[in-house]
Design a protein around this nucleic acid. Structure first.
Length: 338
DNA sequence: AACTCCAGCAACCGCAATATG
DNA sequence: ACATATTGCGGTTGCTGGAGT
């Protein structure tokens, strides 16, 4: 399978990445299918770890760091691809409010998600809203907005989705086994995941598979060797192209047919059956209307609301990307006599 | 059609912590 | 105990495709 192993152990292994860079032509940039195959095969036979020597032994002209990152973020079998679900969004918001930018710690509670993915989600989605609100993502105002509007709204949407799914039968592939009675939003400080570290219950809430863009049949690396490409011909981030490489979720799916099929999912809702109200866990001392915060600071809140209202009324189906729904806007308009 | 702008994301970089000899 | 190598993490960069003009 790999004929580069013979002299592997004879190498000193003392070179660091910079030295390796000087010694040989290390490849950079997007990974090719060939490289992915090589790395997967090597790890399948030899396991992970010792990334620098692994890179050499596998015959990859990559740094150990690059190999590790590629493996952890894309190639390992339990990596979960596809859109961040509502449940995951909620979990990210909650955990970030506790731990800040501790991406890897947050990622530990979202099976299959990588710190990189969560970090990107935060920067592209969450920070975008903060920017629209003209406030800092770390400001109290924005945190309040997340906590008192966005997160409860997510809970409602999750509940609604679960209800819809169960009442409509959910389709054959949905397998939604969740119950709508367990979703009280866990904002009660006494329900502290930190104090019960790593005890977040694996969920019965099964993620909607429709968002999962793993589809081997569309680009099956496993049975189409003619798609092997050369470094000179590769392009990036185009799964629809035969020469596409880097994302490669299809590749892992095909390599590990059993992978990603039964998604473990975080359901910290189940910790909170005692909370019957979304706001029951709030500390009333700090229950400040986020809208009031913006209002008091003269921020362009109305413009933002109107923008989101417009998005909403335009029927965009990605509600998950909107902070506000109709009820939020109604509430905010009442607050400010808009 | 050509160009510009921008969101999304994969990959890289620098640093700190940890492991190893 | 120390030096060096390796790993892990968070921040940042740069590429790509799509939308807008």
């Amino acid at each position: 399978m790999n004929n580069n192993n013979s002299n592997c152990m004879e190498m000193s292994g003392s070179e660091d990445d910079d030295q390796m860079n000087m010694m040989e032509d290390l490849r950079r940039g997007p990974w090719t299918v060939e490289e992915d195959f090589t790395l997967i095969n090597y790890i399948a036979h030899h396991g992970e770890g010792r990334w620098n020597s692994l890179a050499r032994c596998a015959g990859l002209k990559r740094t150990g760091k690059s190999c590790r990152l590629r493996w952890l973020n894309y190639l390992r079998p339990d990596v979960r691809r596809g859109n961040i679900t509502l449940e995951e969004q909620l979990l990210i918001l909650e955990l970030h409010s506790r731990w800040g930018n501790r991406w890897s710690k947050i990622a530990q509670h979202l099976p299959g998600r990588t710190d990189n993915e969560i970090k990107n989600y935060w920067r592209t989605r969450v920070q975008k809203h903060a920017k629209q609100l003209k406030c800092d993502v770390n400001s109290k105002q924005f945190k309040d907005t997340m906590r008192y509007l966005w997160m409860p709204r997510l809970v409602e949407r999750i509940q609604a989705a679960a209800t819809t799914t169960t009442t409509t039968g959910g389709g054959s592939s949905s397998s939604t086994t969740s119950t709508t009675t367990t979703n009280s939003y866990p904002l009660n400080p006494s329900n502290n995941m930190e104090s019960n570290n790593n005890s977040i219950v694996t969920s019965q809430l099964v993620l909607p598979q429709g968002n999962n863009n793993n589809n081997c049949s569309s680009n099956n690396y496993g049975n189409n060797n003619t798609q092997m490409i050369t470094p000179s011909s590769y392009t990036t981030t185009d799964n629809s192209s035969n020469t596409a490489v880097s994302p490669v979720s299809d590749l892992t799916e095909c390599y590990y047919p059993a992978a990603n099929q039964s998604q473990n999912h975080q359901d910290f809702f189940q910790h909170n059956n005692n909370n019957n109200s979304i706001s029951s866990g709030f500390n009333n001392d700090t229950l400040i209307s986020p809208s009031a915060c913006y209002y008091n600071q003269g921020m362009d809140f109305q413009g933002y609301v109107e923008q989101n209202n417009h998005q909403w009324s335009n029927g965009g189906d990605d509600f998950s990307d909107n902070l506000w729904n109709v009820e939020d806007i109604w509430y905010l308009k009442q607050q400010f006599n808009m």
